[in-house]
């Protein structure tokens, strides 16, 4: 059962292709990370999924509804939260929740119960009468999340929700996201934090409008050919220059702190006899650097 299915989705703005032929599917109840640099087409894709922007070609469905034809139906079923939390600074925490509750037509005892739930979820019960202007980023973020799921959406779109928030708040935020996923909410989250993508069940990587990978973090790390090793050294750039001038056959090489990282075909590891090294697990960044470079060669 898929919550999102896209087939050859394309969006052009004049001559510029913002999203190019994207095909992907997201399992219901999973957390899908949509990763890509600024300007790569993340927000354009999300806006099409929310029914805010018409695709130029291709088709897609969200919760079984056609994104071109049934956008009004989709809007009722989704939650959306952006980096600019869109809260009212001069209202209190609970007034913000009441305001959004009103927008979703949640009145009476039903609304009250739901607002109470959101206060507890966001850990804001004790601060419900504080002005939003006085909250720090992490608190605002959790309040904005509360506002966006008041109406119990089946799918939640988070557009760079943790940009600029401190790591501790980020972890608290992810705790809530996991709880939502456990209760069968599908979550699609865009981010440009590589380490954050590790939290997701599946990751799609979009680059210059093209989806160049879509899979689980563990599987993606296995797509890199060869073995990644780390050679500890006080002078990584010096060693890099030495190896660049040598006959050592490597696939990629770069400095990383007090070490040199080398991607090398596994059977050629025997060529490295002069240095002590350790095998390391590639980071997602290694995966994406590899994918982008291969994509460019095509």
């Amino acid at each position: 059962m898929y919550a999102v299915e896209l087939m050859n989705l394309t969006r052009k703005f004049g001559d510029f292709t913002a999203v190019n032929d994207v095909t992907l599917s997201i399992k219901a109840g999973s957390i899908y990370g949509f990763l890509g640099p600024n300007g790569s087409g993340k927000s354009t894709t999300i806006r099409m999924l929310c029914g805010l922007l018409e695709p130029t070609s291709g088709k897609g469905s969200v919760l079984g509804f056609d994104i071109s034809k049934d956008s009004e139906m989709i809007k009722q079923k989704i939650g959306y939260m952006s980096q600019r939390f869109s809260l009212y600074d001069d209202l209190t925490v609970i007034e913000n929740l009441q305001f959004y509750g009103g927008m979703y037509s949640l009145y009476g005892s039903q609304g009250k119960v739901r607002i109470e739930e959101m206060l507890n979820l966001a850990g804001l019960k004790e601060r419900q009468d504080e002005l939003v202007a006085n909250l720090s980023g992490g608190w605002k973020q959790r309040l904005a999340l509360g506002c966006s799921i008041l109406h119990k959406p089946s799918i939640l779109f988070l557009d760079e929700p943790t940009g600029g928030v401190d790591p501790k708040s980020r972890r608290m935020f992810w705790d809530i996201i996991y709880d939502l996923a456990l209760q069968d909410t599908t979550v699609m989250v865009t981010t440009h934090f590589m380490d954050e993508a590790e939290h997701c069940d599946e990751i799609g990587f979009i680059f210059e409008g093209n989806l160049i990978a879509s899979s689980s973090p563990t599987y993606l790390k296995q797509t890199i050919p060869g073995t990644l090793i780390r050679i500890p050294t006080d002078d990584p750039m010096g060693l890099l220059e030495t190896l660049e001038g040598s006959t050592l056959p490597y696939l990629d090489i770069y400095c990383s702190g007090t070490g040199l990282h080398l991607l090398i075909e596994t059977e050629k590891l025997a060529h490295i006899t002069d240095f002590h090294y350790e095998k390391i697990t590639p980071a997602l960044e290694d995966v994406f650097v590899y994918l982008v470079k291969s994509h460019r060669k095509e």
Partner: peptide
């Protein structure tokens, strides 16, 4: 490197290492 693609980010840091050297 905020919001920059991973390849540019990697290249950027390699430049910093070279300048530092």
């Amino acid at each position: 490197t905020t919001g920059v693609d991973p390849v540019s980010r990697r290249e950027f840091w390699q430049m910093l290492y070279r300048l530092n050297k």
